[in-house]
Write a protein that binds this DNA or RNA. Structure first.
Length: 685
DNA sequence: AGCACGCCGACT
DNA sequence: GTCGGCGTGCTC
C-alpha cells in the first residue's frame, strides 16, 4: 500500500510557522506532475479553508493533522529556487513565512473557503463605489457607517486599504454592502497602447556575468542602453527581468520594449487583470528568451532560464513595503540572482549611498564608464525669500520661458495653523501632530498620520486670536503662479499643455517627465529637516534629478548652500557628495557601516517603563549575552490613531540571534502590544 | 492576519 | 430583544 505524504504548508497568517498537512495517497496518485515543493494547495483551516503553498516535505507528526483538500494547479507555482529565496527573506526580515509567500502570489490564485464554498481571488484589490447619490432617505444607520458612506460618496471610489487606514471598521463596510448602499468593484488598470512593432536593427551586446551598478545616466538613456543587452540574452534563449518601482514606469518601458521585441515582452503588476496574471505567470515557466517587465511583485515569478535581472530606480523607497512582509527588494533581488546564478544590474540616475559603497568595496562592478555631470546648462542657486516665495526676478524668468517646470517638494497649502498668543499649533487630537492646511476645493485641515479631515478654522479655539498659516506647500506656489499666469499653470500629471507645469518631484517618475527648457526647484530643504538619516541623500537626489530635466537653465532655491549635495552639484561631481556622506555615516555608525533593527511598540497608554521592562526581561529570558541598543524612546510620531508609539533601535545584532525577536513579538502580542520589527529600516519615524 | 465567539451598551 | 462595536483566543 502507498503511504500518505506529509507536507509543511505556508498559510497567509501572521505566524512564524508553517502548518503540517497530509496528502492522502489517492490525491497524490492523481497528480500528473509529482513535484510538491512550491505547489499551491487548498487546505482546511479552522472552520474555513485557505490557500497555502508547500514549502517542505516532512514526516508524520505526533499531533493529528488535516488533509489537503485540493491541489488545483497542474504544476507548482514556484520552483524550489523561489521557495529557497522566500525562506531566506522571511528569516532575514523576521517576517512570517506565510505572509511572505503570499505577497508574491497573484491575488487571483489566493482562494478562501467560506460556508463550504471556495471563493477565488479574495485578495484582489477591491474598490468601493456608492450605490446611492446622497445620504438622505437611506434609513437607519450607525454613526460610523454613515460617516463611511459620506466619505465614499465624497470620494466617488475608495480602496479597501484606505478604509482600514482611516480607522473605519470593516463591519461598517459590511453593513453598507449588505444594505446595498455601496457596491464592490475590482480595480483594473486601463489597457496600455502598444505601437506597431518597428523594424529596428540591433547589434547584440554580451554582458559578462556579474553584479553591476548602472548609475549617473538618465533613466531614458539607460533604457535604450538595455536594448542591445536584452537582445543578446534573448538570442541565447535566456530570460530578462526588469523591475521598476511604479506601475507608470513599467507601462512606459513595456511600450518601448514592445516596439523592439514584440511578443517576447511581458508585463506584470498588481493592476493587470487576474486572467492576464495567470497566463503570464505560467507561460513564463515554459518560454525561452523572453523579457518580463514588472513591479517588485514580479520578483519571484519563475521565469525560465533567467539570465539577467535589472532593478531600475534602485534607490527607490517604495521597494520596501510598509506592511508585512517588510522585506527590501534590493536584498530580495540579490538573493534571487544568487539562487538562480544570473547577472544583476542595479540602476539609478542617483544611486543609493549603499550601492555606491558596494562598488567601492568591490561587491558590485560599475556598469559603463563613470563620468562627471555635464556643465552644459545654466545653474543658479538662490536663497529662499520667505515673505515672497517667488521674487520679481524669478517671475520675469518664468515670463520669458515657454516651457517650464516648477518643483515644490511639499504637498498641501501650509504646514500648520499657529496661535501667536498661546504659542500652540492646531493639532490632531488622536495623533498629537500639527494638522496640515489644504486649499482644494476649499480650505480644510488634515492629519497626515491618521488621514482624518477637520474643518478649517480662522481663530484659536482657546483664546480666539486669529491664527496664522505657517510654512508653504505646492498649493501655495500654485496660487501665487495663478495670480500672475492664470490658466497657463497646471499640474504636470493633468497632461495639459500649459506654459508653467507644477510637480512635487520627479524621483521614481523620471520616464514620465520630458525635459523642460527651465526647471525651478523651490526649497527642497524640507527633506533635510525631517528626522531621517537618509535626509541628505534624498535632498541630493531631488536636486540632481531637477538638473537632469533642465535643457537650458536650472534654478535651485535653497538655504543650504553649504550642504555637500549643493557643493557637489555646483562642482558637477557626484562623488564629492557620496564620499562626504559615507564619512558621516561611518562617524555616526549608520548604514552601510552598521545594521539596524527598529522595534516599534504600539498600544494605547503604553509607557516607556513597560517597554523597557519587557525588553530587558526578553534579553534575560532568551539568553542574549551582548546586545547594542538605544531606547526605549518615544517615536518621532509618538502617537498614531490614539496609540502610543515607543521604539528601540538595535545595532548590529548577530544574524543567528535575530530569530529570538519572534519570542519578543509573541510576548508583546500576549500583552496586547503590537510590535513592528523592521530590519534595515529605510527611515526611523 | 482573520475570524469566531462573547460581552456590553445603545436603541427599537 | 437585537444590532454593532470591540477585546481575546486560536489556527495543522
Amino acid at each position: 500500500m502507498e503511504e500518505d505524504i506529509y507536507v509543511e504548508v505556508a498559510i497567509p497568517i501572521a505566524q512564524y510557522k508553517t502548518f503540517t498537512y497530509r496528502i492522502n495517497s489517492e490525491l497524490y496518485r492523481s497528480l500528473e506532475n509529482k513535484e510538491l515543493i512550491g505547489r499551491r494547495v487548498l487546505v482546511p483551516f479552522r472552520k474555513q479553508g485557505l490557500t497555502g503553498v508547500i514549502v517542505e516535505k516532512t514526516k508524520k507528526p505526533e499531533f493529528s493533522v488535516k488533509d489537503v483538500e485540493e491541489i488545483p494547479d497542474k504544476e507548482p507555482i514556484f520552483s524550489e529556487k523561489e521557495i529557497n529565496v522566500i525562506k531566506r527573506i522571511s528569516d532575514y526580515y523576521i517576517s512570517p513565512i506565510g505572509m511572505t509567500v503570499h505577497f508574491f502570489i497573484p491575488d487571483v490564485l489566493v482562494w478562501k473557503k467560506k460556508n463550504g464554498k471556495w471563493i477565488k481571488g479574495i485578495r484582489e484589490e477591491k474598490i468601493y463605489v456608492p450605490n446611492v447619490v446622497s445620504t438622505t432617505g437611506i434609513g437607519k444607520l450607525s454613526n460610523r457607517a454613515l460617516e463611511l458612506l459620506e466619505f465614499i460618496l465624497e470620494r466617488g471610489e475608495v480602496r479597501r486599504q484606505e478604509i482600514v487606514e482611516l480607522g473605519f471598521s470593516l463591519n461598517s463596510l459590511k453593513t453598507l454592502l449588505k444594505k446595498g448602499l455601496i457596491k464592490e468593484e475590482k480595480l483594473i488598470f486601463r489597457e496600455i497602447e502598444v505601437k506597431e512593432r518597428k523594424r529596428i536593427y540591433l547589434k547584440e551586446k554580451i554582458l559578462k556575468k556579474g553584479r553591476y551598478l548602472f548609475g549617473y545616466k538618465t533613466q531614458e538613456k539607460r533604457v535604450s542602453d538595455y536594448m542591445p543587452l536584452i537582445y543578446g540574452f534573448i538570442k541565447k534563449g535566456k530570460g530578462v527581468l526588469i523591475i521598476f518601482p511604479t506601475v507608470r514606469s513599467v507601462e512606459i518601458c513595456y511600450g518601448k520594449l514592445r516596439e523592439k521585441f514584440g511578443d517576447k515582452v511581458f508585463i506584470y503588476h498588481d493592476g493587470i487583470s487576474g486572467k492576464e496574471k495567470i497566463k503570464t505567470w505560467f507561460s513564463l515557466r515554459k518560454l525561452s528568451g523572453v523579457v518580463l517587465i514588472g513591479t517588485f511583485s514580479s520578483s519571484l515569478i519563475p521565469v525560465k532560464d533567467l539570465g539577467l535581472i535589472i532593478l531600475e530606480d534602485e534607490h527607490s523607497e517604495s521597494y520596501k513595503p510598509l506592511r508585512v512582509p517588510r522585506f527590501d527588494t534590493r536584498r530580495l533581488i540579490y538573493e534571487v540572482s544568487k539562487e538562480k546564478g544570473c547577472s544583476l544590474i542595479f540602476s539609478s540616475t542617483v544611486p543609493s549611498v549603499e550601492a555606491y559603497f558596494s562598488v567601492k568595496k568591490g561587491i558590485f562592478k560599475s556598469f559603463g564608464k563613470r563620468k562627471n555631470l555635464k556643465r552644459d546648462r545654466q545653474l543658479e542657486v538662490i536663497p529662499l525669500n520667505r515673505e515672497k516665495l517667488l521674487s520679481e526676478k524669478l517671475i520675469d524668468e518664468i515670463e520669458k520661458s515657454s516651457n517650464l517646470l516648477v518643483i515644490s517638494n511639499k504637498k498641501a497649502y501650509a504646514s500648520f495653523l499657529f496661535c501667536k498668543r498661546c504659542e500652540e499649533e492646531i493639532i490632531c487630537p488622536e495623533c498629537e501632530v500639527p494638522l496640515k492646511v489644504y486649499s482644494k476645493p476649499e480650505k480644510f485641515l488634515k492629519c497626515e498620520l491618521c488621514g482624518i479631515r477637520y474643518e478649517y478654522i480662522k481663530a484659536c479655539p482657546t483664546c480666539s486670536l486669529e491664527l496664522i498659516e505657517v510654512g508653504f506647500g505646492i498649493e501655495r506656489v500654485e496660487e501665487i503662479l495663478r495670480k500672475r499666469f492664470g490658466e497657463n499653470v497646471s499640474y504636470f500629471e493633468e497632461g495639459k499643455d500649459t506654459k508653467v507645469k507644477l510637480s512635487t518631484g520627479i524621483v521614481d517618475r523620471e520616464l514620465s517627465y520630458p525635459e523642460f527648457e527651465v526647471v525651478i526647484n523651490i526649497y527642497p530643504d524640507f527633506l533635510l529637516n525631517i528626522n531621517d538619516f537618509r535626509g541628505n541623500e534624498k535632498y541630493f537626489r531631488n536636486i540632481l534629478l531637477g538638473y537632469t530635466k533642465a535643457k537650458k537653465k536650472y534654478i535651485l532655491i535653497t538655504n543650504s548652500i553649504e550642504n555637500e549635495a549643493v557643493v557637489s552639484l555646483k562642482n558637477m561631481n557626484p562623488d564629492f557628495f557620496y564620499d562626504a556622506e559615507l564619512k558621516k555615516r561611518q562617524e555616526f555608525e549608520l548604514p552601510p557601516f552598521s545594521k539596524l533593527i527598529l522595534l516599534t511598540f504600539e498600544k494605547r497608554e503604553l509607557s516607556l517603563s513597560t517597554v523597557n521592562e519587557i525588553f530587558k526581561n526578553w534579553i534575560k529570558d532568551s539568553g542574549i549575552e551582548e546586545i547594542n541598543y538605544r531606547g526605549a524612546f518615544y517615536a518621532y510620531y509618538s502617537k498614531m490613531k490614539g496609540k502610543n508609539r515607543i521604539q528601540i533601535l538595535i545595532k548590529n545584532m548577530k544574524e543567528e540571534e535575530k530569530n529570538k525577536l519572534k519570542l519578543l513579538y509573541e510576548k508583546c502580542y500576549r500583552k496586547g502590544i503590537k510590535l513592528i520589527i523592521d530590519v534595515d529600516p529605510k527611515e526611523i519615524i
